[in-house]
């Protein structure tokens, strides 16, 4: 898959990226109406995804990120085996089916404590539609890959962002345009779910 940066984690430096920003991130993301699930392994992550698919009664799913991450690929294999569920991972299939899909799954590169945002690399078309068109968007996030502030986030972004499409997602799509009443799920997903994986606490690495 085309990306702004093929290996974000390789650019992380310990003065910027740390596990210690998790709690503030979690608080701010929760305040922004993101749903957060903390897991200790990819196996647990898979279980959580299956749970969400069942809960959403999803039968059509789009997924990206499997080319870069073998663990994600394994989860997609499992989803493909589910009865009554169709998973699209090919970019042209995603282009065809994203609009009718119930769930889109992708990966986030890191999180930002100050704002509760996750940084996403959406240079490829399939990553963009997967994150925007379905009613629910699930992202896998390395729990320990967090930065403190937006300033710090841009210290990571600056050197690698030379072209393409990327950004932050902070909770689900929302509006307050009628009577200033907060309404979730406008043009983008109504549910934004973060599955945060902490591989340091055992589980598959």
């Amino acid at each position: 898959m085309k990306k702004v940066c093929t290996n974000w984690a390789a650019t992380f430096t310990s003065d910027l990226v740390s596990a210690k920003y998790w709690n503030e991130f979690k608080q701010n993301a929760t305040n922004a109406a993101a749903e957060i699930h903390e897991v200790n392994s990819w196996a647990e992550a898979q279980a959580k995804v299956l749970e969400l698919i069942a809960e959403q009664k999803a039968t059509k799913i789009c997924g990206v990120g499997h080319e870069e991450n073998a663990e994600v690929a394994k989860i997609y294999e499992t989803i493909s085996g589910l009865e009554g569920v169709t998973l699209h991972t090919d970019k042209f299939e995603i282009a065809e089916h994203a609009e009718q899909s119930h769930v889109g799954i992708s990966c986030a590169e890191f999180h930002i404590a100050e704002t509760g945002s996750v940084c996403v690399d959406t240079k490829s078309f399939e990553a963009r539609v997967t994150s925007m068109l379905p009613e629910m968007h699930i992202v896998f996030l390395n729990k320990n890959h967090g930065v403190n502030t937006v300033e710090d986030a841009f210290k990571i972004i600056s050197p690698v962002f030379t072209s393409g499409h990327m950004g932050f997602i902070t909770g689900p799509s929302r509006t307050a345009d009628i009577e200033r009443v907060l309404t979730i799920g406008v043009h983008g997903p109504g549910r934004f779910v973060i599955i945060a994986i902490d591989e340091t606490n055992g589980g598959a690495a």
């Binding site: 701010n28 995603i94 962002f161 393409g164």
Partner: peptide
């Protein structure tokens, strides 16, 4: 809006790839 960040912050740089149907075929 009194938010720490809006739901979406998007940066676009240059001619980014798209997938669309051209003469009945999906092309990138």
């Amino acid at each position: 809006t009194g938010q720490r960040m809006t739901s979406y912050m998007t940066m676009v740089d240059g001619a980014t790839p798209i997938i669309h149907k051209k003469d009945g075929q999906w092309v990138e």
